[in-house]
Computed example of a mutant assay.
Amino acid sequence: MRRDVFQAIADPTRREIIHLLADRSLSLNMVAEHFDVSRPAISKHVKILTECGLVIIRQQGRERHCQADLRQLKEVSEWVEHYRKFWNHKLDALEAFLTEDGKKKKKRSK
C-alpha cells in the first residue's frame, strides 16, 4: 500500500524520526536508541516513512542505514502555503473591518 506524506507526518514519533535523519544517515539501531519504544515499533514507523518516500533505506554490510529524503515534504509545504494565504487574507479583511468600525465609533462618540 502506498501511503501519503500526510499520513507519515501525522504521528509524532515519525516526525521525530524525520528530524533525526534530516542532517545525517543513521542505522536503524541508532534511530531506535532515541526512543522509549521497541525496535520493531521503530521499524514499523520507518517502513511507513519509506512507503511514502520520506526515508530511504540502504544496506551497508549487516546494517540498514536510514536517510531522509525531504523532497516529499514539498507537497505539505504547498498545502500549508495555500491555507496560509487564505488565513492571511481573512485576517487582513478582519483587521480592515475592525479599523473602520473603530473609526466610526470614534466619530459617533464626539
Rank of each mutant, 00 (worst) to 15 (best):
I48A: 05
S77A: 05
V76H: 10
F97N: 09
Q72D: 00
E78I: 11
H82C: 10
D23K: 04
S109L: 14
R2Y: 09
A8T: 03
R64D: 01
R58G: 02
D11Q: 10
K105S: 05
Q60C: 04
D92I: 03
C66P: 02
K110H: 12
I56M: 10
G61W: 01
V55E: 01
N88Y: 12
E75C: 09
S38H: 04
K47W: 08
R84K: 13
W79T: 15
D92R: 15
W87R: 12
F86C: 06
V37A: 11
E100I: 09
A93P: 04
E95G: 09
R84Y: 07
H19M: 13
Q72V: 15
L26N: 03
K105G: 01
L91Y: 13
I48Q: 10
F35K: 03
F86Q: 15
G61V: 01
R14G: 02
A22C: 06
I42S: 03
E95C: 09
L21A: 04
R14A: 01
N88I: 12
R14T: 00
W79E: 14
L21C: 09
R24T: 08
A22T: 12
Q7K: 07
E51T: 07
E78Y: 05
R62N: 00
K90E: 15
D36I: 00
E78A: 09
G102F: 03
T50S: 06
V76Y: 00
H45N: 13
T50D: 02
D23S: 14
H65A: 02
I48P: 01
E81N: 07
E75W: 05
A32Q: 00
I57H: 12
V46L: 15
R71G: 15
I17Q: 12
E63Y: 04
S25G: 06
N88F: 13
I17F: 07
I17G: 02
R108S: 14
K103L: 11
V80H: 06
E100C: 08
A41I: 04
W87L: 15
S38T: 15
K47V: 10
L70T: 07
S27P: 01
L49N: 03
V31P: 03
L21Q: 05
D36C: 05
Y83S: 08
Q59S: 10
E100P: 06
F6V: 09
L91E: 10
L49H: 07
T99D: 14
